[in-house]
Simulated assay, not measured.
Amino acid sequence: MELTTVWFVLIAILFIGYFVLEGFDFGVGVLLGTLGRDDRERRVLINTIGPVWDGNEVWVITAGGAMFAAFPEWYATLFSGFYLPLLLILVALILRGVAFEYRGKRDDERWKRRWDWCIFGGSLLPAILWGVAFANIVRGVPLDADHEYVGGFFNLLNPYALLGGVTTLALFVTHGAIFLALKTRGEVRDRANILAGRVGLVAAAAAVAFLVWSLLIRSSPAAVVLAVLAALALVGGLLANRVRREGWAFIGTAAAIALAVACLFAALYPNVMPSTVADANSLTVHNASSTPYTLKIMTWVAVVFTPIVLIYQGWTYWVFRKRLGTSDIPA
C-alpha cells in the first residue's frame, strides 16, 4: 500500500476518533439545559465529560496537523476555502472551553446561566458545522486549475450540506444522551434514556437520507457496505437503549458514527477534495501529498507515539468510569 493511501486512512481514523469521542461531548453540551433542571443536575452533566472533553479535542488537532504534513495542498485549500465555518468552529470551541473553566468561579445563578448558554452554543455550532463541512468535501466544491477555492460562503450552504449538518447534530445529541444514561443514575439517567429514544428516531431518519444522498453523489462498493453497517449499528444502539442496556447502546451509536464517517472517506477516495468545475482540478491523494521522504518520517513517528496516546486516553476513561448522581455533587 502506498504511503499516500496509508496517511489518507490514518487521517480518516483521526476524524473518526474525534467525531465518536467529541460527539458525545457536543451532545452533552447541547442537552445541558434540557436534562439539567437545576444547578446540581447541570453540574452532574458537566462532570460526566469534565475529565475527558479537552483530551477528546486533541484528535482534531492531530488530524489537522497530519493533514498539514501529509497533504499540504489539501490543508491549504480546505482552510482557505472553508475559512469562515472553520473559524466559527474554533471560536465556539474556545468559548465552550472557557465556559467549562469559568462557570464555577462565582456562586451566582445568573453568572452560571450565562456560561451554560456558552456551553450550549459552543456545542451546537460545531455539531452542525462539521456536518456541513464534510458534506461539502464529499459533494465537491468549485476549485480552479491552481486548486484554489473560487466559491463563496453561501456555496457551502446547499441543501445536501445542510442535511449533513442536521444529521451530525441529531447523531451527536443521541450519542450524548446515551452517554449520559450510561454515566449517571437517578432521574437524570431516566430522562436521558427517554430522550435518546426520541431523538434517535430523528437521527436515524436523517442519517439514512444523508447516506443515501451521499452514495448517489459519490460511491464505491466499500462505501455502500459501510453505510449499511452504520445503519444497522444505529438501529442496534437504539434497541439496546430501549431495554436500558446503555453500554451496548453507546457502542451502537459510537459504531454508527465511526462507520458513517468511514463511509464518507471510502466514497471520497482517491480524491481528498473534488472539484465541481472540472475533474482535472480535483485534489487527490497523489497531487496533494508531501514527498515520500516526509511521509516515511511521519509514519515512523506515528508508529511510536500513537500507541502511547491511545493507552493514556484509555486509562483516563477507565479511571473515571463510574456513574454520577446529584448525591456526588456537594452543595
Results as ranks from 00 to 15, higher is better:
F82N: 07
Y102I: 13
V132T: 06
P126G: 02
G65C: 12
D107I: 07
L93N: 09
L90T: 13
A63E: 08
V91R: 13
A69D: 02
E73A: 14
E148F: 03
G50A: 14
A76F: 06
L90N: 04
E101W: 05
P142K: 05
G121H: 06
F79I: 14
A135S: 14
I94P: 10
V141Q: 01
F154D: 13
V58N: 15
V58F: 09
A76N: 06
N155W: 03
W111Q: 10
R114M: 10
R113D: 13
L88E: 04
A127N: 06
R114H: 14
N136F: 00
G104K: 11
K112W: 03
L129T: 04
Y75S: 02
F71A: 00
K112G: 13
Y149A: 01
L143A: 09
P51R: 05
R103G: 08
A99T: 10
F71Q: 04
V132A: 01
V58D: 06
A66Y: 02
I89D: 03
G121L: 15
V138H: 02
W74A: 12
N47F: 03
V60F: 12
E101C: 09
F100S: 05
F68R: 05
R110D: 13
L156C: 09
F153T: 13
S80G: 09
H147Y: 11
I94Y: 05
V52H: 01
E148T: 11
V150G: 03
F79S: 06
S80L: 07
W117E: 11
A127G: 04
A63K: 02
L90H: 04
L124V: 11
L125G: 05
D146G: 09
H147E: 00
W130S: 09
H147P: 01
Y102L: 14
S123Q: 07
A70Y: 01
E57V: 09
L129E: 02
W53D: 09
D116N: 15
L87N: 04
D54K: 11
N47M: 14
G122M: 01
R103W: 09
A63T: 08
F68A: 12
N155L: 05
D54I: 08
R113P: 10
W53M: 08
D116T: 15
D107S: 12
A135W: 00
R96H: 07
G64H: 08
W130P: 00
I128N: 01
A145Q: 12
W130F: 14
D144R: 00
T62D: 11
L93A: 07
V98M: 12
V52F: 08
A66F: 05
K105N: 11
G131S: 10
F68D: 05
F120C: 12
A63Q: 10
P51M: 06
L95K: 03
K112I: 07
L84I: 15
E148S: 12
I128P: 01
